[in-house]
Design a protein around this nucleic acid. Structure first.
Ligand code: FE2
Ligand code: FE2
Ligand code: FE2
Ligand code: FE2
Lengths: 219, 219
DNA sequence: ACGGATTGTAAAGGTTCCCTAACGTCCGGT
DNA sequence: ACCGGACGTTAGGGAACCTTTACAATCCGT
């Protein structure tokens, strides 16, 4: 069962991972890739050699996607995020379920399905978590980390970066707490360890320091 | 990228194949499986041993799916046919494209997606080609092979069996010729070699002997 | 009854993708 | 200057799935 395109699922997965690490502003090194993909460091080491010999990455002075690697990664990420939109908006799956499912669909969707889904959804510019869909008309909003909001200030959730999808249970928690792109709230307290207390739709929610530093909001 | 359930794609593919051979009334022997899956006979031989040791088939006196194998096969076929319905009805893909795509989706759809898609489509009972969706309220229609229709007689296309999806280009041809379940036509001629000439929606189409013997129609 | 096709299996081997164990390097803190 | 950690790599191995080549067994039409 090869994927729709011409590349093996493993290659797609590694390129996607490199793309998202860069997007999340995390050092693109083998150790990070190993963590995200949940494989051993030797496995990554070996795969880096294969990716390089296939012309998908270069490794002189840090791991970087080549043009071909970038194209592949963008295709995979685009399909992942379109699939997430479809799964949440049309099939009414939860964030967490949609994310898991999309992680499989991204390797299986053909170009025509990608196009048809894009049409069906009205060419969305972000996934349900607010991350940009490559190839769409996404315009970078003027956003800053939730952790930089002052006590008492209002904000609108803008984006929950891909990085947070790796913390088990976090997506579920955020969705249940209505912490989804577009909703607005107020910071009611900041504890010394960086935990924020928010007020959203009449409910109060605590958000840890790490998550707060990653979630992007606008005024 | 394992499948949604607990089984490897290869196991799913083999069980599905056995299920469909039976459904098409073809001898369930290794040679047929090798042909349909486009693998060598030794590969099938080895896999039969694995499937048996996993309790998915029995081989005493012919290859037969066990309860577990049957369940797995039905799940996969159900997902394949639901996916085909979705891809043609909602995403407007052609038959041929939908079939290819569904061949990958069937190993990747989760239970919740299967359920959501079933709901979205209104619990269809057949795939676009008229083949029954396992687990649906399908009622076997009173149908007979197209080849048994007399010259001059009218008919309604009922079902294009899975078997014909393996002849390259045939699906495309049938769809373009409006030879889809539900449409009706008339047999205008039968040649000695078994080729039928049909009249469908004002157009005339020739259908070969093999296809005619498999396509099911009702009066 | 016989010769050619069809079928199943054995043997040997290959690719992809992963693992553990172990080792060398480098880097920041003390 | 020294040490613990983090990082990358080597070596050796393994599971899944497939291949080609070759060889028996079985089936079947004439
Ligand atoms: Fe995601
Ligand atoms: Fe996302
Ligand atoms: Fe199909
Ligand atoms: Fe079908």
């Amino acid at each position: 069962m090869p994927a729709a395109g011409e590349h093996h699922p493993a290659f797609e997965e590694y390129c996607e991972c490199i793309f998202e690490l860069k997007e999340d502003d995390v050092d693109v090194i083998q150790a990070r890739i190993a963590e995200r993909l949940q494989v051993s460091r030797p496995a990554v080491s070996e795969m880096m050699r294969r990716l390089e010999s296939e012309g998908l990455i270069t490794t002189d002075g840090g791991i970087r996607l080549t043009r071909a690697g970038q194209d592949l990664a963008e295709r995979v990420v685009r399909r992942h995020r379109l699939a997430e939109r479809f799964l949440t908006d049309v099939l009414q799956l939860s964030w967490a379920e949609a994310h898991h499912e999309a992680g499989r669909w991204e390797h299986v969707m053909s170009e025509s399905v990608e196009a048809a889904m894009d049409r069906l959804l009205g060419s969305p510019t972000t996934c349900p978590h607010g991350n940009p869909i490559p190839g769409s008309d996404y315009i970078e909003p003027d956003a800053s980390p939730l952790s930089s909001v002052d006590v008492g200030a209002k904000f609108v959730i803008s984006r929950i970066p891909e990085e947070l999808e790796f913390t088990p249970g976090l997506l579920e928690f955020l969705e249940e707490s209505a912490l989804v792109p577009g909703t607005n709230g107020t910071v009611t307290a900041i504890s010394p360890d960086g935990t924020l207390t928010l007020e959203i739709g009449g409910h109060h929610v605590g958000v840890g320091a790490f998550a707060s530093s990653r979630i992007l909001v606008s005024a």
